[in-house]
Amino acid sequence: KKIKIDLKKGPEGLGFTVVTRDSSIHGPGPIFVKNILPKGAAIKDGRLQSGDRILEVNGRDVTGRTQEELVAMLRSTKQGETASLVIAR
C-alpha cells in the first residue's frame, strides 16, 4: 500500500532516521524508516512508522539512490517548507 505523507519541517527537523537494507554490488538496496524521533515533524503528524519503505521524496523516485543521497534530499528541505514523501507499508 502506498501512502503520501507531507511533513512540514520545523525547528526540530523532520524527526526520523533511515536505514538501507540488502545493498549489493548491483547498487543500494531499498531505504526504510528506522526510527521516529521523540521530537520533529514525523511524531507530530503521526502517520510515518518505523519499517516504512521510502519510495519518493518531493516527487523524485529514490529507487537506486544511496542512503546519503536520500538524506541530502531531505536536508535540502528548509525549515518551514514541506517534505513530500511517498512510502510503502
Rank of each mutant, 00 (worst) to 15 (best):
K1L: 00
K2I: 07
K2A: 02
I3D: 03
I3M: 08
I3G: 01
I3W: 03
K4M: 11
K4V: 12
K4W: 07
I5E: 00
D6M: 13
L7G: 00
L7V: 07
K9I: 15
G10T: 15
G10Q: 10
G10F: 07
P11A: 00
G13A: 04
G13C: 05
L14N: 00
L14M: 14
F16Y: 03
T17A: 04
V18H: 05
V18D: 01
V18K: 01
V19W: 13
V19A: 14
V19N: 15
T20S: 08
T20H: 07
R21Y: 05
R21K: 12
R21V: 13
D22R: 03
D22S: 05
S24Y: 03
S24I: 04
I25L: 09
I25T: 05
G27A: 09
G27H: 11
P28A: 13
P28C: 11
P28F: 12
G29L: 08
G29E: 13
P30N: 13
P30G: 05
I31R: 02
F32C: 11
V33S: 01
V33C: 05
V33P: 01
V33R: 01
K34N: 15
K34W: 05
K34A: 12
K34M: 08
I36S: 01
L37V: 09
L37T: 14
L37W: 03
P38S: 12
P38T: 15
K39S: 10
K39A: 13
K39R: 04
G40T: 02
A41N: 09
I43Q: 08
I43W: 04
I43Y: 05
K44V: 14
K44M: 14
K44S: 12
K44N: 13
D45H: 02
G46W: 02
R47N: 11
L48I: 04
L48N: 00
G51T: 03
D52L: 00
D52F: 00
D52V: 00
R53H: 09
I54E: 00
I54V: 11
I54G: 00
V57K: 00
N58K: 08
G59Q: 10
R60K: 07
D61E: 13
D61W: 05
D61V: 10
D61P: 10
D61K: 14
T63E: 06
T63I: 11
G64W: 07
G64D: 11
R65N: 08
R65I: 12
R65K: 10
R65V: 04
T66G: 09
Q67Y: 14
Q67L: 03
Q67A: 04
Q67C: 03
E68F: 02
E68C: 04
E68Q: 07
E69K: 12
E69S: 11
E69A: 08
E69P: 02
L70C: 05
L70E: 02
L70S: 03
L70Y: 05
V71H: 14
A72F: 03
A72G: 09
M73P: 02
L74A: 03
L74I: 09
S76D: 14
S76I: 10
T77D: 11
T77R: 09
K78G: 11
K78I: 08
K78Y: 06
Q79P: 09
Q79W: 06
Q79K: 11
Q79N: 15
Q79E: 12
G80A: 09
E81L: 09
E81M: 14
T82I: 09
T82W: 08
T82G: 08
T82Q: 14
A83E: 06
A83V: 13
S84E: 14
S84H: 14
L85H: 01
L85F: 13
V86I: 11
V86E: 11
I87Q: 06
I87F: 04
A88N: 15
A88E: 14
